[in-house]
Write a protein that binds this DNA or RNA. Structure first.
Lengths: 217, 217
DNA sequence: GGAATATATTAACATTGTTAAGTATATTTG
DNA sequence: CAAATATACTTAACAATGTTAATATATTCC
């Protein structure tokens, strides 16, 4: 049974063990295939034990959602070295695309799926309005700062930085989500001579976007 | 049982009846809640009957997906009257946003969910590569044409029209999907004084986008 | 009328998330 | 030390889900 070993852990670590198992299943097979029961089987506990540590599946989804933001923060941390804000903005865009395409399951959990945010609304808070989305805001702020710095260098004149940062994010998110969900790939199959494939379309759109931003000086 | 009435229909109409029922359930309760069994219950047939007319659930998802594009085409049909291509482009953007926010379930099925496109890949075709996505391409082409017409009026100089059209679509899709999934709403709950709410953020980003495009002349 | 075909159903399988009730084990209390 | 309590976990079950195989019931054709 392997009962002995597992009992040796300090209590409370089980919450982390569940999350680790969920994460590993999630990264291997995706979110849909990561059922409570499979997590339980992997850590050799009964399914109901999970409910002692997580309120429901959206709770686990939110925990994985946070893991995704941790991973993304790592990738972005290197970019603070880039002095010139517009160069940094470009690097952020490339990093964002790379993260989205290489960790598409995480990307989905972070920016597409409703389930993690559902947890914020229904389970996590006493607030009637639903809880705030810290991870999202904490990712948006560096973008906003960079946009503001760009403006000090003469870029994006007369633009409201918040709105402009949102526009930049939207464009990036749009490209990435259309790509990782296969919509661009499928459209390229039409004999319209549009793009070779989805990834190539994404790269072209990104280059075009950067050029466009670079001309706003 | 109401058996008599239902038998009065011509055979073959059942496929349409299933779709109508699926559509009505889908529009009322969303995709997740629209189960094969509930569709069957509503039309007073057994669940397995559905499988005589649709291969699996992704087949139904794709049929609804097509219904969504039909609905969208209706909304867009009026815009061919707009003479000036840039005015038309702006109107297309507004219409796109309106469609996405007022028919968010359809929007999701058309541009976000993987299930309808899964059907193209796995069930619908003998092609190894997966079938082409006609609906997407047919929606993209009018945008592409409008972008090309704009270029004849001096807009978007030097831009590759296909890439630029994709960029425009990506930006619109990004805004809309972040909005209808509640990400913008949740971010606005942070006390960062960003935007009032998601919808207001969307409108601001769109205005900013249009202004940006208008300056590319 | 009997055979062939089209159409629909019953029953079942393997999943899923989730809850209520029960059972050990450990800890505290008298 | 023995009893009461709290902690940690499990068993069993419910109500759904998509899906398939086997079966029944009409309808059509010869």
């Amino acid at each position: 049974m392997g009962i002995k070993e597992r009992k040796e852990r300090h209590k409370g670590d089980l919450k982390q063990l569940i999350l680790d198992s969920a994460k590993s299943l999630f990264m291997k097979y995706g979110y849909e295939a990561t059922s409570i029961r499979k997590i339980a089987a992997e850590i050799e506990f009964s399914p109901t034990t999970i409910y002692l540590y997580y309120k429901d599946k959206s709770d686990i989804a939110y925990a994985l959602h946070r893991e995704g933001f941790k991973l993304m923060a790592e990738k972005f941390s290197a970019l603070s070295n880039v002095e010139h804000p517009f160069e940094r903005l470009k690097a952020m865009g490339r990093t964002y695309i790379q993260f989205a395409t290489e960790n598409s399951d995480f990307y989905e959990l972070m920016f597409i799926m409703k389930e993690p945010l559902d947890f914020l609304d229904t389970s996590c808070s006493d607030n009637q309005e639903g809880e705030e989305w810290k991870e999202g805001a904490n990712t948006f702020i560096p973008l906003l700062k960079t946009v503001e710095e760009c403006q000090q260098y003469g870029y994006f004149k007369g633009q409201d930085p918040k709105t402009f940062a949102l526009l930049v994010w939207s464009a990036m998110h749009g490209m990435c989500s259309l790509t990782i969900h296969g919509h661009l790939d499928h459209m390229c199959r039409e004999k319209l001579d549009l793009f070779e494939n989805g990834k190539q379309a994404l790269d072209a759109a990104y280059s075009s976007f950067i050029e466009l931003l670079g001309n706003m000086k």
